[in-house]
Structures are given as structure tokens and as C-alpha cells.
Amino acid sequence: MQPNIGITEENRSAVANELNKILADEFVLYTKTKNAHWNIEGPDFHTIHIFFESQFEQLDDIVDSVAERIRSLGHYTPATLQLFLQLTHLTEASRSNNSSTALIRELLADHESIIIHLRENINRFANEYHDAGTSDFITGLMETHEKMAWFLRSHLK
């Protein structure tokens, strides 16, 4: 049964397609953060290992909430690594080195890229697709990524 929530199927479909891309970005960033947690090396290993753990736990919650938003609009989520890699605008980990500085810089760049992408869609979801709920939802995601980026950026000073 299709949701009857005051948004046309065409608009729900368009929003779900954009959310699928956001979900892919979030999942790729989650994976890269998990990779950083597992592979960090250096004198600050323990501190940064724990820091990355807190970040990937936040991202795990984000991944779940984006998937649930897609489902609440009456659509299915992509759920394979292959689909995520096709949909994301991020790249897989570069593996330049496993120092905290290198890993933090790469993760920070991804957070900032996601922030820009989310910001570009806030008004689009509300005005073009008449979906204030998803607009509000991604505003919250953007704010979460801004805080996570701030935490990462603070390690680089």
C-alpha cells in the first residue's frame, strides 16, 4: 500500500532517489571511518582509535535513519556495496598512510562534501518536491555532519 502523506508519488520517488545517494555517501563514509578506526597507527593511536569509534557509531545511526526515511516514503533502499559505490559521490579510502593526520584529513573532506550536498538539497526538497519533512530531516543531518567535521578539524590545529 502506498503512503498517503500529501506528497505525490512522482515527488516521493524523486526524493527517495536523492536519499539513496545520500545513503550511499553515508555508508561509504561509515566504512571509511571504520577503516580509520581499525588501521590508525602512531603515537596517538589509542586516543584517535576511540575518537573514530565514536564517529562511526554516529554514522551507523545516520545510515539507519536515512534508510528508514526512504522506507517511510514508500520506497526501498539500495543495500549492496556495489549499489552504494555506484550511487556515492565519494571515493573509497585512499590509503595514503595510516597516520591520524592523513586519515582525519580524508574523513574531513568527505564530511564537508556531504555537508555541501545536503545543503544544496534542503530547499529543493521543500520547494520543488513539497517535502518539508525530508528537508527538515536533511537539515538535521547537515548539522550533525557540521559538528562531526568540527571535531575532525579540531584535531588538525
Rank of each mutant, 00 (worst) to 15 (best):
R71P: 01
T77Y: 04
T47K: 13
R69L: 02
A14T: 11
K32H: 13
N20S: 13
L141P: 01
V66S: 01
S54N: 15
A109P: 09
T134V: 03
F125K: 07
R71C: 01
F27Q: 13
A16V: 06
V15N: 01
L81M: 13
Q58A: 08
S113M: 15
F125D: 05
L83G: 00
T47L: 13
E143R: 10
N39H: 14
L85W: 08
I70W: 05
S113H: 14
A16S: 11
S54W: 11
T77C: 01
N35V: 00
H75W: 04
E106K: 03
E57Q: 09
N11F: 09
N97E: 00
S99V: 00
S100M: 09
G133Q: 03
E128Y: 06
L141K: 07
E53M: 08
F151V: 14
S100Y: 01
T101W: 02
Q86W: 03
G42F: 02
T47Q: 13
V15Y: 05
N97P: 02
F27E: 08
D44Q: 11
F56Q: 12
L118I: 04
A79D: 06
I62N: 03
T31W: 12
H117Y: 12
D60A: 14
S113D: 15
G42H: 03
L87N: 10
E112C: 11
T31H: 14
A132R: 12
N127A: 14
E57M: 11
N35G: 05
V66M: 02
D25P: 03
K147F: 00
S135N: 08
R119G: 11
A109D: 14
F51K: 15
A36C: 06
I116A: 15
P78I: 02
F84G: 07
T31G: 15
K21E: 00
I62P: 01
Q82P: 05
E120T: 09
I70E: 02
V28R: 13
I22H: 01
Y30A: 07
I48M: 12
T31K: 15
T88Q: 09
L83M: 05
I122W: 02
E106Q: 04
K147A: 06
N123T: 12
W150C: 15
V15R: 07
P43R: 13
F51V: 08
A67E: 05
L85T: 09
H130T: 05
D131I: 08
A36R: 03
K32F: 05
N20D: 08
I122M: 08
T31M: 15
I50T: 14
F45K: 10
I138Y: 01
A79L: 00
Q58F: 00
H89V: 07
L87W: 00
T144N: 11
L118M: 09
I104Q: 04
R153H: 12
L90D: 04
I70V: 10
H75G: 02
M142A: 15
K32Y: 09
